[in-house]
Computed example of a mutant assay.
Amino acid sequence: MRHDIVVAGAGLVGCAIVCALQQAGFDAALVERGQAPRPFDPAVDDLRVYALSPASIRWLQGLGAWQRVAGWREGPYQAMKVWSDDPSRAMSFDAADLRLPALGSIVENSLLQWALWQRLDSARLYTGAAVEALSLGESGAQLSLADGRRLECRLLVAADGVESRLREMAGIDTVGWSYGQRAIVANVQTARPHARTALQRFLRSGPLAFLPLGDGRCSIVWSSTEAERLLALDDAAFLAELAAAIQYEHGAVTATSARASFPLRLSHARDYVRDSFALAGDAAHSVHPLAGQGVNLGFSDAAALVGILAEARDAGRDYGSLRCLKRYERARKAGNLDMLAVTDGLSRAFDLDIPGWPALRDLGMQAVQRLQPLKTLLTRQAAGL
């Protein structure tokens, strides 16, 4: 079977790329080693949530996917507080400073994936079939699937995650390291309402975030070097330690869903492209979750890639050529590296054991709070503006 473009990986970024390509008039197909996602079930807790920026939301609106999410299970947040030792001295960010209705919105992975999946052309979906072999060249790509099917395309886009098998097949190396932390995720109920405010506290063991959900609960992401001990606690002990860690900003934490965890590491591909081949999303870069920017970076990859491919096609140029794909790499690599550096630096800044450093660090945070132009710039950056 021949297609213009094949995208491997049916996560959020992969589905979004295929949606955008099909909307732009490409014959674009999606290959996924697993099965199609199940219809979204609001009765089932999804512990994997994303903090979508206004820029990402606008792009999803253009794809027709956000309309299936908005006003249902999304958790828009208008404000954010960030601190280390004393919440009364926190940096605060407010959507009103940018004249926006919200700084972003917290959305469950399964809801957004299902919304995107509904926008895809079902005749161009290949599920339950891993890529077993790959051949790349100046004229295109050939894929052999585990079920015996063979696909040909002018361009293959790998959006198959941080452990990308296709990236390895293409011979692209990565650089990175482990943080020695695990992120604990759960949905919790608090005694006081979250008031659509996101919280982030930096502890010596790692950052803790409370993200407001649309149903009144909070999603927590607790990145910690003590994760194994915290996971071993019973619910009552865990809730008590969690409330103390966030310094009771929402009062007591009264209930929790099941808990899950995953290891944290930084990863960045040395190259994003080869002849007839491009990486996007986590296959190209994986950042610390403390700033909630991972999926937003992936959607920015997707928007840039599709825009460059459509422009090349409309100008009569070869959109699968290395020369064209290098434009995409240049457009995204520097910004992604900047975000990796910022998140890595922040993750380490609160773990330095240097005399006088905590006081100096807190003075820096207070300076940002007082300098409104700088704070506005940081807020616009986080919002993808």
Rank of each mutant, 00 (worst) to 15 (best):
M1A: 12
G11R: 07
G11H: 06
G11Q: 11
L12V: 14
A16F: 02
Q23V: 01
G25Q: 08
F26I: 05
D27G: 03
R33L: 10
G34F: 08
P39R: 10
D41A: 15
V44G: 01
D45H: 03
D46C: 05
D46P: 08
V49W: 09
V49C: 12
W59Y: 13
W59E: 08
Q61G: 05
A65W: 08
Q67L: 06
R68F: 07
V69G: 09
G71R: 10
R73S: 12
E74R: 05
G75Y: 04
P76F: 03
K81N: 10
S84R: 15
D86E: 13
M91S: 14
D97C: 02
G104I: 09
E108N: 06
S110E: 11
S110M: 11
L112I: 14
L112E: 09
Q113E: 14
A115W: 07
L116R: 11
L120M: 05
D121W: 10
S122I: 02
A123V: 03
A123D: 12
R124D: 00
Y126T: 01
Y126H: 15
G128E: 11
A129Y: 07
A129H: 04
E132F: 07
E132G: 15
S135W: 00
G137I: 11
G140L: 02
G140A: 01
Q142E: 07
L145A: 11
R149N: 10
L151P: 04
V157S: 01
A158I: 05
A158Q: 06
D160L: 02
R167L: 09
E168H: 14
T174H: 08
G176N: 11
G176H: 05
Y179L: 10
Q181G: 06
I184A: 07
I184W: 08
I184Q: 08
V188N: 09
Q189M: 09
A191L: 00
P193Q: 07
T197F: 04
A198V: 07
L203M: 12
L203T: 13
G214L: 03
D215P: 06
S223A: 12
E226M: 00
E226V: 07
R229P: 00
L231P: 00
L233I: 02
D234R: 07
F238S: 04
E241K: 08
E241C: 02
L242P: 03
A245H: 06
Y248I: 08
E249T: 13
G251S: 10
T254I: 07
A255R: 13
T256C: 15
T256K: 05
S257D: 14
A258H: 12
A260S: 12
H268Y: 13
R270Y: 04
R274K: 15
D275C: 11
F277G: 01
A283S: 15
H285D: 12
P289D: 10
P289V: 13
G294T: 01
G294S: 12
N296L: 02
F299I: 04
S300L: 12
V306P: 03
V306T: 11
I308H: 01
I308K: 00
A310S: 14
E311T: 06
E311V: 02
A312Y: 07
D314I: 00
R317N: 05
G320P: 03
S321C: 00
R330L: 03
A331M: 02
K333R: 15
G335D: 15
M339L: 10
V342A: 15
L346V: 13
D351N: 08
G356F: 11
W357M: 11
L360V: 13
L363S: 14
V368D: 06
L371S: 02
Q372N: 12
L377G: 06
L378P: 04
T379C: 13
R380C: 02
G384H: 05
L385V: 05
